[in-house]
Amino acid sequence: MANYAIRRLFISLMTLLAASAVIFALIEILPGDPARIMLGMNASEEAIRSLQEQMGLNQPLFMRYFSWLFGMLTGDFGRSYTYAVPVADLIRERVVVSLPLAVLSLVLSTAIAIPIGIFTASRRGRPADTAIMGATQLGIALPNFWLALLLVYVFAISLRLVPAGGFAGWETGTWTALKSLLLPAFALALPQAAILARITRSSLIETLAEDYIRTARAKGLSPAQVLYRHALRNAFIPVVTILGLQFAFLLAGTIIIENVFYLPGLGRLVFQSITQRDLIVVEGVVVLLVATVILINFLVDCSYALIDPRLAADR
């Protein structure tokens, strides 16, 4: 197990290094000069040159890559061109919004999807199953930003239960802050839950058709015992895979959802930085997101080994 984990970790680190080079190269070839954007249409060439010097944009590309890379190893992500504050500070301010949002929607979607999956699998083909599966089809088809607008209309404008957007800040109290994350989390979670529920259902149905399940039934176990003791654990491998993939989707989804709900999260930061050509911020956040996805994949790989020890032994 330990060997397996170390191997996966090494592969993950190499992936991250390669990703950092690709990210830096891709973003640096974007057209548009950050200094010119900041000073606008009336600026003199002289003022633009002064600003380029201030921002260190006149240094060669590979020099900038290496100083950026080594800086990140020590936790220094550079200084934002537009905000003129350390990128690490910007990221820290935003993570406290995005991470709780992503975790909350992941928890919500799992909490909704797994019971639905189990319930429908055990009632396969009956009216309840058909109805719920029809509803999940709708859930998959709904784009999350549209769902977000509907939720805002009902819960914020008509019922006035929660704010229409914005983030109150954790310093205003946990409940007030959580309240501003509830609608966005639901908007992100529902479409994901629909997918997850279908995967859980089909994987469970497949497992329930296996020979050893028939054996378990034959030796006189109750349907519940068969389901929870024998079938569920084996059915979970594809579910965990999808969960890992969904986390990456959730991170991408936050870019749209954070704009709809004007939440000051990482997604908003990336979006804003791209339009302002605050390249160093974009690079920092994207590397962080890539690192998160790689970390999640690593954890998913490790959890396979926990669910099914044969997988670790084989490799």
Partner: peptide
């Protein structure tokens, strides 16, 4: 000054009184 870039969100924020 609250920053609301999305037009639909701006409408909702006014209607909700935020």
């Amino acid at each position: 000054f609250r920053i609301i870039p999305d037009p639909a969100a701006a409408t909702a924020a006014l209607l909700a009184g935020d």
